[in-house]
Structures are given as structure tokens and as C-alpha cells.
Design a protein around this nucleic acid. Sequence first.
DNA 1: AGAAGCTCAA
Length: 682
Amino acid sequence: MITGEQVIKFFEACKNGRCLNQLHSLTIKTGFKLDTFFAAKLIDLYSRFTPVETTRKLFDETPHRTVYIWNSILKCYCRDKQYKETLSLFSHLFLSEKPDLYTISIVLKACAALKALNHGKIVHGFVRKSAQINRDLFVGSALIELYSKCGEIDDALCVFEEIPEPDTVLWTTMISGYEQNGEPIQALEFFARMVIAKGVLIDSITLISVVSACAQMFDLKAGRSIHGYMTRMGFESGLSLLNALLNLYGKTGSIHAAANMFEKMPERDVISWGSMMACYAHNGCAREALDLFDEMVARGIDPNAVILISALQACEATCNLQGGKQIHKLAIKKGLDLDILISTALIDVYMNCFSPDEAIEVFDEMPERDAVCFSAILHGCVENGRAGKSIGIFREILANGFQPDAFDVVKILTACSELGVFQQTSCVHGFTIKGGLADNSFLGASLIESYAKCGSLDGAIAVFRQIIDRDVVIWSSMLAAYGFHGKGQEALQLFNQMIKHSAVRPNEVSFLSILSACSHAGLVKQGIKIFNMMVKDYGLTPNSKHYGILVDLLGRIGELEKAMGFIGQIQEPVEANIWGALLNSCRIYQNMEIGEIAAQKVFDLNPCHAGHYILLSNMYADEKRWDNAAEVRKFVREKQLKKFSGESVIEIRDEVCSFIANDRSHQDSKQILELLCILEGR
DNA sequence: AGAAGCTCAA
């Protein structure tokens, strides 16, 4: 017969899990009936050292189950993150046994992890009925955790306030609750309360949350003073705490402080490496982030999803497609490629590296999608000239019940403008009104631009008129809208209305719009007057785009030398099209001298643009310098330069057709007519 | 008899 004392000794020996099998076989061999104490001990040991299934088997074989035994199996499932199973077992337990403090704290933990607030509230109700459970600190901390994980931090505070003498863990749970719920100021205020509270010790876990709160606020000053406090109180060690500090310095852009800390750390884990990488990646040192990633892998540290995301962001920032692809492969190898955050990071990398097809492939394979990844693919498609695809994505966003934000709508309007699709623009307009986004000024400006670019000046005017509170962005976009349509006089009228009858002061963009409108409409004198107004009356500094238009305007009235003089004043690198505009004017006024200078500049800046060579060739021809003309044309032939063709778009029902407006346009029109016939026949 | 709070991305 085995004595109780022997059993206890055996359990002591089993604490490392090694003698577990012997213990179990002993129970079977000796025919020792599992009394409840013994069974409970055994299940508890099994739950620590064996897979859940094995423990479950033992549990199922145990005939008489005490609360202690139930608790062991509940803890086992909870530790294995099988929270739903934990709750389902709890409901079974409830039928036969009365849960104790320990049961309740496990169940509350499962509710918190599942964010099952209603379920948790029922358990809370049960807690309140028992005075003993209600004053238990462990249950209290589980309740606070439940409410704070479910975003109900006020309810968490209510629980906390009811506890007469909260201990360090309870205080810390509250502080971290505020921090996790994006309320770092309250977290620090709570910490201040904790510091002056009597008889409560602050430990390193408390400080982790406090430091994180400082990091969340990007408050280096507060962080430094906490660091100072830590030094005074002797909290200079602890990996997690050092990691939190590393993150603080990283978030506040103190690269040196972070790198210094990282170097001096006695030990580092994945989080240390991840924090340091994120610090580099977010502070414009993407190269260093990737170097660190390589070093980490070389040292045999296994990168997790967070690390891969940081590495992908570093690739994105440096347009490192090769690196991105390598990390993609690694993610596939680790089975992380379908993770929603990894997939989103991959989409961002591919889109930023001008590889929309790869990004779309990643997107198509995602098993589940959230609003963030939809935005990523939408923005990426628009940026990469996949306007048609982006409209499909936008429909998918709506079909999946996600609410696009103003940024998404601005992007989709860019796509509409690019395609020139009036009906789509009009639909999106309707959506902005329904979605309550009509107040957004950037969205209003996008709508104006979109309508104008889709050929509906009336639509643009209607949007403009409906906006009561017009800011400079709205005014500028309306000026630009008149400009697109060659309505120079209307643009000038609007500009006068803006500067005389509104409180809005035109900025650089407004001037660019009005100057461009003048240029398109051939209002040369007015344009030059407005340019002078911009510099003298408004004290704004023109950039190369403003100068470009001025050069064009001066060129039109033959002030070629003056125009060239202005080009000399441009501070930034001069774009090819500015010299191109001057070259064009030189042809009109037959000024070969300046024309040759402009041509040389334009060829240097953009050697592949056939149109500029043809222009020069025509100038030589005008002067009857046939040899020079032929020479230029021969050059174009030899280099196989082609003139870019203009492209037109029409919208038939919901099909978008584009055709190229060159000598083949006849064929294209025929195709469109055929398409029309098919559609009509439907 | 058995127990709690935390750090890297988004």
C-alpha cells in the first residue's frame, strides 16, 4: 500500500515532469484507486507536461470529479489558448459542481481572451453573489482584465474602486488597461496615484506599462523621467523592461539612445531585435533595419510575424523588391504568409515597388480580409495605374460590409478621374453623401476634380456650390476645374471672388490652378499679372511649376529672353517640360538661337521624348536648314524613338473603352461601334 | 492542494 507521504514525495519528484510516466504506471500497477486528491494531482501534473489530449483522456477516465479536478482541466485548456473549449467545459462543470475562486479566475481569463463581454458579465454576476469570491484579489484582477480587454475601461475602474486594498498586480492591471485602450495619459495618472498609495510596491511589470504609455504618447521627456525614477529605485534590469525602454527610445526617434541600449543589453530576445528594427525602419534607417534583420537571422534567432512585418516595411521604404520577395519566401516557409498583417505588409511592399500583379496575387490568396488590407490594395492599385481594378476593389469593400474612409474615397475618385468615368464619379458622390463624408474638404476637392476630369464641369460647379464652408483646397480645385475646361474667364472671375469676397487666402496651389487656367485659355497678360501678384502681394515663392507656366505665357507673346531669364531663377532642378514649352515658343517666333539652347537642355533632361526632336527638326525645316532637319530625324530613327500617342476613353454602360487617338483610331472607333451594337443587342 | 499584471507590428 502506498502511503500519503510517499505520494507527496513522488509528486515532488515529478515537478520537473520526468517521473510522470512512472507515477502513472505505478497507479495502474498497484491497482491504486484514484482517490480524488491523487487524481487531481496527477491531472494537474499532466496538464503541465503533456499535450492537452493526454490530460483530457485522464480527465475522462476519472470517475469522481471534484472542483479541483475540473479546475486542472480548465487551466489546461486555457493555457493552450483553447478558450472556447474552456468555456464549454465550464458550463459542464456548472451542472455538477459549484465553481470556486480558482474556477472563476480561469473562466474570466477565457472570456477576456475571447472578448466575450456578455459571457463575462454573467460570471461577474455570479461573483457578486458570493462574498468570498467577490473579495478575492485574483478574481478582481481577472475581472479588471476582462473589462479592459473588452474596451470597457470605465467598468474595469468600477471593479478596481470596489476593492478595499488593491495590490501591485491590480494597480498594474489598471495601468496596462489604460495603456492598451489608447489612454496613456490616464495610465500615467493612475501610476501617479499608485506611487502615493500606501503600502503598494511598484515592480518592474508596473514600469513596463508605464514606459509603454510614455512611448505611446511619443513623450520622451516623461519617458526619461520614468527612466530616472527606475534608476533611483534600482530597476535597471529585466529583459521586458529594457525592451519597453528600447521601444520608448525607438518611438520617440532617439535612434542613438536606442542603439546604445541595444548594444549594452546583457541578453536580447525576439522583442529586443524587433524593437530595434522597428526603431530603424520608422526613423528613415531602413538599410540599418534590414542589416539588423540579417544579423538576427545569422545568429540563429527565429523571426516571428512582427519581425517579418518590420523587415517588410524596411523593404517598402527602400523600394527593395528583391528583399521583399525573399522575406515573402521566408513567410511562406514559416506558414505566416496568410497572416492578415503579413499579407497586408506584403501588399504594401509590392505596391510600393511597382509590382501590382504580385500584390494582387497576395490579396487574392488571403483567407480573410480586414478594412486595412482592402485600403492597402485599393491605394496601391490607384498609385500603380490600375484604376479599373481599383474600382472593382471598391465595390468589393462595399460588398463585404466595410465602411470606406475619406482617404479610400479620395483614392477611388483619383481612379475615376484617370478613367474619366462620369457615372462612377456620380455613384461615389452619392456614396459620400450617404456615408456622411460630405464634410471632408479633401473629398469635396476630389469630387470637383473628378467631375471636371470626367467632362462634367456642371457636376464640379454643383459640388462647389453645395459646399458652404469652402477652404483653400476647395477654391483651388474649382479654379483647376475651370482650367481643365479652358474656361479662363470664369476661372478669373472665381479667383477675384475668392480674393475679394472670401476670407480664404490663396496659396501656392491656388496660384498654380489659376495660372494654369490662364495658360490653357491663352489669357497671357492676366496670367503674368497674377504671377506678379503672387510674388509681390502675397509674398509666395513660386516653384518650378509656377515658373513653367510663366515661361509658357511669356513664350506665347514672344518674350523669349525674359522667359529664359525666369528659368534661370528656378531654385529646384528644372523639369524637361519647361524647356519644352520654351522650345515650342521658339518655333512659333522662329528664334533659332534660344531654340537651340532650349532643345539642348530638353534633350539632356529627357533624351527619349521623340516629340521634342521633331519640334527641333521642324524648326530647322522652317529655316530651310534641310541638312540639320534630316540629321535630327535620322537620330530619332536610329534611336527608335516613338511619339507617345494620346488616348481617349469613353464609357458605355458600365464598360470602359479606351482608344488611341492616332492614325489607328479609325479601327478603334470601329471596335467601339461593334461593342455598342453588342450592348444594344443585349 | 492550484493562481494574477507586461514589452516588438497594426
